[in-house]
Amino acid sequence: MDAVTKVLEMGGYAMWVWPAYGAVAVGLIGLLLITLRSLKAREREFAAVRRNRPPAPGDAA
């Protein structure tokens, strides 16, 4: 337990070290999630466009 507190306290610098690691975690995980979300959305959109595509040009009318 003592070892855990020691790590958490960061030698008195906890208020600087932990928020910085938190910011990096939020940045990296957030970037990954946003990327995955837009990729999935576009894949769905693209699949839909393919399905609705008229088999031959000129059918649109």
Partner: peptide, 11 residues
């Protein structure tokens, strides 16, 4: 710099 050196590893 004590434990603030740990910021080095992400900065």
């Amino acid at each position: 710099q004590g434990d603030t050196v740990r910021l080095f590893y992400i900065h």
